[in-house]
Nucleic acid binder design. Structure first.
Length: 618
RNA sequence: GCCGACUUAGCUCAGCGGUAGAGCGCCCGCCUUGUAAGCGGAUGGUCAUCGGUUCGAUUCCGAUAGUCGGCUCCA
């Protein structure tokens, strides 16, 4: 696969989408418009900041950016100035022209300091980009120029594959959004450039709609809703990325755990429980110390000079359990499941609420299987994942098959194993009718994997559930089972976590449902609202009665709102808490033997308790 | 970790070189309520922390911490 575009550094362009979209974004006018807006911004920057060195500036999903090496640090306040300059340059109606040149001519242009956008200032980056263009490919530049009324000549030339729109005057509805640091070519060892993000649309209405949607999305942010709904909190006195689960959030977790345990029992999993810390030697043996050390919390040493670590993953412990006794081929597959809380010392800048915490709980399991069982077991896991997604009501996800990057040699294991495992995953997805896309380079170093990817409220991708085939750890720990031939054989391990982590999944669900969880998940399912305090006693009785009702695996979760507040106030507060049902209890109801039922959608009228229970979602 | 921004009462936020304000919440009264905020009162802040500039700093500058948007990385 060649580099997707000179101006497109997107990693995702490496991925092969399986269902072809009817009109690809890359072919749209909007895409060209945004690409041209990026050039316009670069032109404005070169005029405003003579020492600025340009590197790369592609359109992206919701706009565009340009990575620029500024002589002085750029501040957010500077964006207004750049925006104003862009407006001025756009109005000049500069024609955007493509020119195709030879490699030598290209080098000449890049080094020509008389051309704005070219010369010594940019050559550091542009020559590298030129070198990256494969031999034989067309090399193109885009030029825009015009003399303004005051007689000043404006010009901008950029090495670019294009395509672009015809004139800068088409760039009217844009906004510079933010600035950020970004490493040259995405490599931390390279220089950090200043990235300016912007967006552009064809019409003013679309731009305003987009900005409005962004505001709306912020209200669905799990960090805001988590606080409003009393799900979890963080305290700086506890530590960064270490969530404290409040009663309602803890209830939500329990419900999800119950659901998963039930599914796992059905599927022949056995529960295990392992400690939070363990001897470092185990992790040396597993190899995690080599690859994971900088993501671990500081080590602990006891009086006997033994070193312990806070576990960043559960697998070595489960392996110890497997290895604790002789295994027959008849015992396999062995499936050990644990809601394992792990701790990873994520870099401070990458902790994001509950979506990326430093302490989190995986719905983890490890399957030890024979080679001939690999496909069936993988199918079983994919089936479980589909069941989970379905139950959670998640439809907006993508499945990614992470395969080996053929140009990288970081992988361990025999080629035959890789091929077999990758094919097993493809076959399992095909059999289970799960659409996926393949992404070379996204495999674990020890084997291929299948990940579920979901977007959050702000459009960011998150890896959720995962299934990974592992030939490496069985090898390192010399795991065995006795085969039919009474000789030792090596099992294959499957690591899998259908939710991924409870934290991340609850965060995503919060955003997906904007806090209005499905009935079965809601921390409070029913709020009883006595109208006056003479109804409080009956309300408590009703609550006790409802708590006898088993729904799914647990008793109905019922509260009584007996605060000395008006009914309107109680309704409002419970509505804001997204309680699925309110049962209103007053004189009329006591007389008639009914309750006033109100769902999230509004008043459903008076009905008997039996009628209410019968209409609950099944 | 790196680049940029933010941090004022429990929460959401005004304010500003002369040591602070609103709404909601909490608490106390009154009201006893029929489908999205009843009324009144009271409480509540070393303006994140530590330094500097200044006659004087919550306000200006610097450092630190936390948070947010990115980069890198990841469940």
């Amino acid at each position: 696969m060649t580099i997707a575009s000179l101006c497109t550094g997107r990693k995702s362009s490496m991925a092969i989408e399986s269902p072809a979209a009817p009109q690809r974004y890359e072919d749209s006018y909007l895409y060209r418009l945004r690409h041209s807006a990026a050039h316009l911004m670069a032109q404005a920057v070169t005029e405003l900041y003579p020492g600025a060195r340009l590197s790369i500036g592609p359109p992206i999903e919701n706009g565009f950016y340009y990575d620029i090496d500024f002589p002085e640090p750029l501040r957010e306040d500077d964006l207004a100035k750049i925006e104003a300059k862009m407006k001025e340059l756009a109005k000049l109606d500069q024609r955007i022209e493509r020119l195709e040149v030879s490699r030598d001519e290209a080098k000449g242009l890049i080094l020509d300091s008389t051309i704005p956008g070219m010369g010594e200032a940019v050559s550091e980056y542009k020559l590298q980009l030129l070198d990256a263009i494969p031999e034989g490919d067309t090399i193109s530049f885009y030029n825009q120029q015009r003399t303004d009324r005051a007689g000043t000549f404006h010009r901008f030339l950029d090495l670019c594959r294009g395509p672009h729109i015809d004139s800068t005057k088409e760039i009217k509805n844009f906004k510079l959004m933010s600035i950020a640091g970004a490493y040259w070519r995405g490599n931390v060892n390279n220089k950090q450039l200043t990235r300016i993000y912007g967006t552009a649309f064809e019409t003013k209405e679309e731009l305003e709609q987009y900005l409005h949607n962004l505001e709306e999305a912020k209200k669905r942010d799990h960090r805001i809703l988590g606080k409003e709904l009393g799900l979890y909190m963080f305290s700086p006195r506890v530590g960064t990325g270490l969530p404290l689960w409040l009663p309602k959030g803890a209830t939500l977790r329990d419900v999800m755990v119950d659901f998963m345990k039930k599914e796992q029992i059905k599927r022949g999993y056995d529960p295990v429980v392992t400690p939070h810390i363990g001897n470092i030697k185990l992790y040396e043996k597993s190899g995690h110390i080599l690859t994971y050390r900088d993501k671990m919390f500081p080590f602990m040493e006891d009086e006997e000079k033994e070193t312990y670590i806070l576990k960043p993953m559960n697998c070595p412990f489960h392996i110890e359990i497997y290895a604790s006794q002789m295994r027959s081929y008849r015992d396999l597959p062995v499936r050990y499941a644990e809601f394992g809380t792990v701790h990873r010392y994520e870099q401070s800048g990458e902790v994001t609420g509950i979506l990326r915490a430093r302490g989190f709980t995986q719905d983890d399991a490890h399957l030890f299987v024979r080679p001939d069982q690999l496909l069936d077991e993988f199918i079983g896991v994919v089936d479980l994942m589909k069941t989970v997604l379905n139950k959670l009501g998640l439809t907006d996800f993508r499945a990614r098959l992470g395969t080996k990057d053929p140009n990288d040699n970081k992988y361990v294991g025999h080629e035959d194993n890789w091929t077999a495992a990758t094919q097993a995953i493809r076959d399992a997805c095909a059999k289970m009718d799960l659409p996926y896309f393949e992404s070379p380079g996204d495999a674990a170093f020890y084997g291929p994997k299948l990940d579920l990817i979901i977007k959050d409220a702000l459009g960011r991708d998150w890896q959720m559930g995962t299934v990974q085939v592992d030939y490496n750890l069985p090898e390192r720990f010399e795991l065995e089972y006795t085969g039919e031939d009474s000789k030792p054989h090596r099992p294959i391990m499957i690591h899998r976590a259908p939710f991924g982590s409870l934290e991340r999944m609850i965060g995503l669900l919060t955003e997906q449902y904007a806090g209005a969880f499905p009935f079965w998940l809601s921390p409070v399912q029913i709020a009883i609202l006595p109208i006056a305090d003479r109804h409080n006693e009956k309300a408590q009785e009703l609550a006790l009665q409802l708590r006898e009702v088993i729904y799914d695996t647990r008793a109905l979760r019922v509260t009584v709102d007996d605060r000395r507040e008006t009914l309107g106030k109680k309704i409002r507060d419970n509505q804001l808490q997204r309680v699925p049902y309110m049962l209103i209890l007053g004189d009329k109801d006591l007389e008639n033997g009914t309750v006033g039922v109100r769902s999230r959608e509004g008043d459903l009228g008076a009905m008997t308790l039996e009628a209410f229970l019968n209409q609950l979602p099944s």
